[in-house]
Computed example of a mutant assay.
Amino acid sequence: MATMNVSLPDALKAFVEAQVGERGYGTSSEFVRDLIRHEQARTELRALIADGMASGPGSELDDDYFTRLRGRIRQAADA
């Protein structure tokens, strides 16, 4: 695993330390890694959304659409 040093102002350092204690992280590194993973996931989701928007017109989001969606979810849960 590579090491990276990050300089933080006192207020941000205190915030990180508080989050470590409040959220049950073992170290500040664990907290920062979790933040980075969340940012990666957010970035990937934004890219998927942009790809979907660029792919052309989508389905009409009416009651029938949501009824079909609920049915597919139920089928997947039963499988």
Score class of each variant (00 low, 15 high):
residue 27 T to L: 14
residue 9 P to V: 10
residue 4 M to L: 13
residue 25 Y to L: 08
residue 32 V to M: 06
residue 23 R to G: 00
residue 15 F to C: 00
residue 55 S to V: 09
residue 70 R to F: 11
residue 5 N to S: 14
residue 34 D to Y: 13
residue 50 A to V: 09
residue 44 E to D: 14
residue 45 L to C: 10
residue 26 G to K: 15
residue 54 A to Q: 15
residue 47 A to K: 09
residue 1 M to K: 04
residue 42 R to G: 07
residue 6 V to S: 11
residue 77 A to F: 07
residue 63 D to W: 15
residue 52 G to Y: 09
residue 52 G to T: 14
residue 12 L to G: 00
residue 41 A to E: 04
residue 64 D to V: 13
residue 57 P to R: 13
residue 42 R to V: 07
residue 37 R to F: 08
residue 35 L to W: 07
residue 21 G to F: 01
residue 54 A to H: 11
residue 75 Q to W: 12
residue 37 R to D: 06
residue 36 I to E: 01
residue 17 E to L: 14
residue 51 D to H: 02
residue 17 E to C: 07
residue 45 L to F: 15
residue 69 L to K: 02
residue 35 L to K: 08
residue 11 A to L: 08
residue 65 Y to W: 12
residue 40 Q to F: 15
residue 9 P to I: 09
residue 48 L to S: 10
residue 43 T to Y: 15
residue 71 G to V: 05
residue 62 D to M: 06
residue 67 T to L: 10
residue 4 M to H: 10
residue 73 I to K: 00
residue 40 Q to R: 12
residue 44 E to R: 14
residue 31 F to P: 00
residue 53 M to F: 12
residue 6 V to N: 02
residue 33 R to S: 08
residue 20 V to Q: 05
residue 36 I to L: 11
residue 15 F to A: 03
residue 61 L to H: 09
residue 50 A to T: 07
residue 27 T to P: 14
residue 71 G to F: 09
residue 61 L to W: 04
residue 75 Q to N: 08
residue 44 E to A: 11
residue 64 D to W: 02
residue 57 P to T: 09
residue 51 D to C: 02
residue 6 V to R: 00
residue 51 D to G: 08
residue 11 A to E: 12
residue 20 V to G: 02
residue 63 D to P: 08
residue 20 V to I: 10
residue 46 R to I: 02
residue 35 L to N: 05
residue 58 G to K: 06
residue 23 R to T: 06
residue 9 P to Y: 09
residue 43 T to F: 15
residue 21 G to T: 10
residue 18 A to D: 04
residue 37 R to V: 02
residue 52 G to I: 03
residue 76 A to C: 02
residue 35 L to F: 02
residue 35 L to P: 03
residue 59 S to Y: 12
residue 58 G to V: 05
residue 18 A to I: 01
residue 34 D to L: 04
